[in-house]
């Protein structure tokens, strides 16, 4: 009978890490001593998994980049939203005015409520685009935090749209705007974390796409 050759500790380590050039499975299956040794090794190495680094919060990358940016000779694009901010603000205010005019002073329309809803959705679409633009910039580059007065401007418009959406029977839109409002309030008070901003950008992107799709469907039908 051929004397039994046990797996060496080093072979077991390689097997644990799937690095071995031999196939020790058979040996482990047929030899209780090797199997017991291997299980002991597994327990130790599994216990080593407990050496976990402390979790970094979701603003870690932003802070890291801020520190690096000061030290590195890099160039960055100027945030685009500054150029568009005032124009978007005026457009949003005009859209609200159009909505109210369309809703309350268009007696010849066959269904004033529906016509008003169309204008509301148009205005909310612009507002969402504007919010998305700002949040995307903040998410991409937290050092370009929005100036407080401009944030307040956006927040004021958002409140108006949210209340109007709720009164016009658009609960889903009212909920989204409510969530956006909470985020804008938080951004006013503290530096907002990138993760939350990205999540909101994603939701706004989805909502904006749905609005565009609904609008283009309506135009096709006309």
């Amino acid at each position: 009978m051929i004397p039994h050759e046990h797996l060496t500790p080093d072979e077991m380590v390689l097997h644990y890490y799937s690095e071995g050039c031999r196939e020790p499975e058979e040996r482990l299956a047929e030899c209780p001593q090797c199997r017991a040794e291997y299980r002991a090794l597994q327990r130790v190495l599994n216990a080593a998994d407990g050496y976990a680094p402390p979790e970094r919060d979701c603003g870690f990358e932003a802070r890291l980049w801020e520190r690096l940016r000061r030290e590195l000779p890099v160039r960055q694009a100027e945030p685009r939203w500054r150029l568009h901010w005032r124009a978007l603000s005026v457009a949003a205010a005009l859209a609200v005015a159009i909505f109210f005019i369309g809703r309350w002073s268009a007696p010849n329309r066959p269904d004033p409520a529906l016509a008003g809803n169309d204008v509301l959705m148009e205005a909310v679409g612009d507002h969402i685009d504007r919010s998305q633009f700002l949040l995307q910039e903040v998410a991409n580059d937290p050092r370009t935090a929005a100036p407080r007065e401009e944030l307040a401007d956006l927040l004021g418009a958002n409140r108006l749209y949210r209340q109007t959406a709720a009164m016009s029977g658009e609960p889903a839109m009212a909920d989204l705007l409510d969530e956006l409002e909470q985020l804008l309030v938080e951004m006013q008070n503290v530096e907002q974390t990138n993760g939350e901003v990205r999540e909101m950008v994603f939701k706004l992107r989805v909502a904006a796409a749905e609005l565009r799709k609904a609008k283009s469907g309506k135009e096709d039908r006309l």
Binding site: F60, L72, R75, Q76, A77
Partner: peptide
């Protein structure tokens, strides 16, 4: 070429794993 936005992508992709490695 000195493009900060491009380098930031790399920082964002690997910053956390480099931190974990550094800690361990």
């Amino acid at each position: 070429t000195g493009d900060g936005d491009a380098f930031r992508l790399l920082v964002e992709r690997y910053g956390r794993s480099v931190f974990r490695l550094g800690y361990r």
